[in-house]
């Protein structure tokens, strides 16, 4: 290594280290708080304590954790798979089969994306009530499956998808669906990984809409549980932190696993 690149490398580590430290600190604090009593948390104790088991037990007596995690898991699994599948297909369709009409349609979708959900929440609620679907997983999942955000993401990412690959596949006699499944999907692995992380997180953390459509205790999700724990007059932040960690870990794990896909895709080799 030349001295210049060595200095540059050290600077990179220093910068990244600092950024990582700042990023991780609140997470660390959450882990620490999980092991401390309410008063210790309020007083800003920064070291691990011995209250972890007590906090856990206290949470379990207040909340049916198994049920809650089951609900969150089902919603997130179905939501993520359906959203990524449907919305990636649409994004691909919008980019590969471009036409002026589709471009206009797409602009319209972008505008729809910018309408705050709060404005549409009441009529949407009425629709689900009329359909008799309140308090069901279907009510939570259905409005989110076609995500304009993810459609837009795939449309933009597809611009980097090499057309030569598609042309070659056509010559080989593959039909359009086969091209999508066998060529596009593996090539865009990293895009799918990113989309999965994002959609997983959005579903797992979904708050306002589940709050409105879910009505009974046995349908509660982890996000709603954390919210109600905090709103006590005298919230036990130790217990809240246990719930917060449980609410956070799955997304971290999914990210950690999927970030491995952020390595050079097949495109580099093909071109």
């Amino acid at each position: 290594m030349s001295p210049v690149s060595r200095i540059l490398r050290s600077a990179t580590y220093l910068g990244l280290g600092l950024a990582a430290l700042i990023s991780v600190f609140p997470f660390y604090w959450m882990l620490v708080s999980m092991t401390n009593s309410a008063v210790e948390v309020a007083n800003g104790k920064l070291t691990f304590g011995d209250q972890l088991i007590a906090n856990f037990q206290s949470l379990l007596t207040e909340v049916d954790m198994v049920r809650v995690l089951f609900n969150s898991t089902v919603i997130t699994l179905f939501g993520t798979i359906l959203t990524v599948a449907l919305s990636s297909a649409a994004g691909y369709g919008f980019e590969i089969f471009r036409s002026r009409f589709k471009d206009h349609l797409f602009s319209l979708l972008l505008l729809m994306l910018s309408i705050p959900f709060g404005a549409m929440m009441i009529p949407l609620f009425v629709m689900f009530a009329k359909a008799g679907l309140l308090n069901s997983f279907a009510a939570i999942l259905l409005p989110g499956i076609a995500s304009i955000f993810i459609v837009f993401y795939f449309r933009q990412a597809t611009k980097a998808f090499p057309h030569e690959l598609r042309d070659a596949a056509r010559i080989d006699g593959l039909n359009e669906l086969q091209i999508f499944l066998r060529i596009y999907l593996p090539v865009m692995r990293s895009t799918y990984a990113a989309a999965t992380v994002i959609v997983f997180m959005a579903n797992w953390n979904a708050y306002l809409w589940p709050l409105i459509v879910l009505q009974t205790n046995d349908m509660k999700t982890i996000t709603l549980v954390v919210s109600s724990l905090v709103s006590a007059y005298n919230p036990n932040y130790g217990v809240v932190s246990v719930a917060a960690v449980i609410a956070t870990l799955p997304t971290c794990l999914v990210f950690f696993i999927l970030q491995r896909s952020f390595v050079e895709g097949l495109t580099g080799g093909v071109k």
Binding site: A89, A90, G93, S99, L109, L124, M127, A146, V151
Partner: peptide, 21 residues
């Protein structure tokens, strides 16, 4: 092919957004 890839998403968006908007 293009339309059939887009359609499922469009139909859902139509159902769940047009009336609320």
């Amino acid at each position: 092919w293009g339309w059939s890839l887009i359609m499922p998403a469009l139909v859902l968006l139509g159902i769940f957004m047009i009336y609320p908007i």
